[in-house]
Design a protein around this nucleic acid. Structure first.
Lengths: 340, 340
DNA sequence: GAACATTGGTAGAACGTTCTATCATGCCCG
DNA sequence: CGGGCATGATAGAACGTTCTACCAATGTTC
């Protein structure tokens, strides 16, 4: 049986309230150095750890952050990196996280969520964005007084997301500076089941177009919401694209899913990467297995997790004070060799 | 403020103990249908949810499973699929999971872990195997009376792991049946920083060797613990291998990290996959971006998570009754086209 | 030498549950 | 008409904390 305050009190000859005060070293109370030492010693010997449930019940604080995720495997799953970032930030604070999985029904009609959240007694909640979450969830949580921070979302406040717009712009400008003129943007993600336009895909593409227009170059979209090839026809689509007279000298892919087919086509056509075709891709995390010729722009997953937690903690400390969205830059992982 | 039993009691005109009994419909107690209906109605209207902390304190059960993970990004991170499997099983049981991150110091010397676990009041713990976890952790937990199930480990009991041996054998046999004779096994994973031999890598390779020997074919290891090429030299290594007169007609890779370089080499050499070179790879989850020519053997991550939880629940229900290891088969995802 | 602060504590209550014990009816039966 | 017995409850205690109030000495000050 775990040791309690009363056990320590009995063995060190004082009241359990004194033990409690000493172990937390509550400001405003004074105890003699002798008592203090005795209590600390006994606590150490018994391997005392405060009972989290009791503490939570008394203080109202659980030291627990709920993390919402959908159950759909393709969308809104918690990546190890995001989880790692969340944990890194929590660990310093003597907090832990409870993961809460929501099935599609709960995601779509979140009326019962506040109740559910209260049951997993948590101080606040981190919500990994999923396009199926209806916007009214924010209002519901606010109404229930549950502090929430959104991850990878564009809420008006209390959210953290990657700077997709800037990443799209930077990637394009980098290629332009290298002398590329025919730069295409590829997005085949729409042949995924249940794919709808995501902020990220939209913003990356928008950043690309901005940079192209600024340089007076014609943007070119391969794939996209309309016009994406069927999965089986993808490779042929890419071969055709790379064989044409107007073939791009660089392709920026919305994800590895969109970029790899071009790479494979290039390999098959004998084009050298990146000498004949530069390939840039956005990705959630570093795909070492993809090989080192691809240049990757990595979504700052770990940083998002960390930032989201620290925002949530700030929100807990100062309830009701909304904070402006926090926008995080991508990480540039140059391919090898990188011409530039 | 969340509604409590007393709130419901006040509004429905009975004692809070009655409310508690009615809402749990405790066997052995009898209440009139009228009272019962009144209480249920009021509870519904107030959106009552039992306070988990209070319940946990009273009953000793927290309804919470701790999941241990290391902080190292390459090893022992919780994949979305594993997490999904865990959650799927928990959700049906009105349970939730708390993730506990351990830094390297905590992993290496886990003497304080039982205390830590007790603080995150959890009924039991799921441990994602990491080669840096010292074996004595098992004994420590047992001694502290904390029920534990190991995921992807080969503990003598209370563990769940994929059938790497069988997968290695099956993959090889499948290729042999297709007429392949020069089948090589590739493992480049040792050029990862901090790579030590893992059960999985060992067993898959052992399964391969068993099948080869049974068919009186010569096993061939490309890479491996000794003899793996440096990361920058990997592609050349593969090109050389595929150019030689004794070139394999099939390569089984320990992971995409080990298989992809062969694929790229094949593309560059104009070899058709799988017509000229069959590629099989073991992987933790389905890499759609890798393209459809590779045949993948998927580690049953979700199934492991689900099975591990159900084992843990069984252990909680019958404490001290150790269960034999549960071994789960891989999923075969044939490449396209699959010759066979 | 009485009023008063300081030091070093103790005591009771509360948080929201669940568990165990008790109790007031009304009813049947002998 | 009183003993047994269902029915439909209630009351108290306990879980391990933390918070607020109080208290008994011992010094300090005018």
């Amino acid at each position: 049986m775990p040791a309690t305050l009363k056990d320590i009190a009995r063995l060190s000859g004082c009241s359990f309230q004194a033990v409690s005060a000493i172990l937390r070293d509550q400001p405003g109370t004074r105890f003699s150095p002798a008592t203090r030492a005795r209590v600390l010693l006994v606590a150490e010997q018994l391997g005392y750890r405060p009972n989290a449930s009791a503490r939570a019940m008394r203080s109202g604080r659980t030291g627990c952050i709920a993390v919402l995720r959908g159950t759909h495997p393709n969308h809104s799953s918690l990546s190890p990196h995001l989880l790692g970032g969340i944990m890194r930030e929590l660990d310093g604070q003597d907090l832990h996280a409870a993961i809460l999985s929501l099935d599609d029904a709960q995601l779509t009609s979140p009326e019962h969520l506040p109740k559910l959240l209260r049951e997993v007694v948590a101080d606040g909640v981190l919500i990994k964005y999923d396009h199926r979450i209806p916007p009214r969830l924010g209002a519901l949580l606010a109404q229930a007084g549950i502090p929430a921070v959104w991850v990878n979302s564009r809420q008006p406040a209390d959210c953290v997301h990657p700077d997709d717009l800037e990443a799209g712009r930077l990637a394009t400008e980098r290629l332009i500076r290298l002398g590329h003129r025919r730069i295409a943007y590829a997005d085949f993600s729409y042949d995924l089941a249940d794919a709808t336009e995501h902020y990220s895909a939209h913003d990356r593409h928008a950043g690309y177009r901005t940079a192209m227009r600024a340089a007076r170059l014609a943007p070119r979209l391969l794939g996209g919401r309309r016009g994406h090839p069927a999965p089986a026809a993808r490779l042929d689509f890419c071969l055709d694209t790379l064989r044409g007279p107007e073939r791009p000298t660089a392709v920026i892919g919305n994800s590895a899913w969109s970029t790899c087919p071009f790479w494979h086509a290039a390999l098959r056509l004998g084009l050298r990467v990146p000498a004949d075709l530069s390939l840039l891709t956005f990705e959630n995390w570093r795909h070492d297995a993809l090989g080192q010729e691809l240049t990757q722009y990595l979504v700052p997953e770990a940083e998002m997790g960390q930032a989201a937690v620290s925002r949530l903690l700030a929100l807990l400390a100062a309830p009701g004070v909304a904070q402006a969205p926090l926008v995080l830059p991508f990480t540039w992982v140059p391919g090898n060799p990188w011409r530039g």
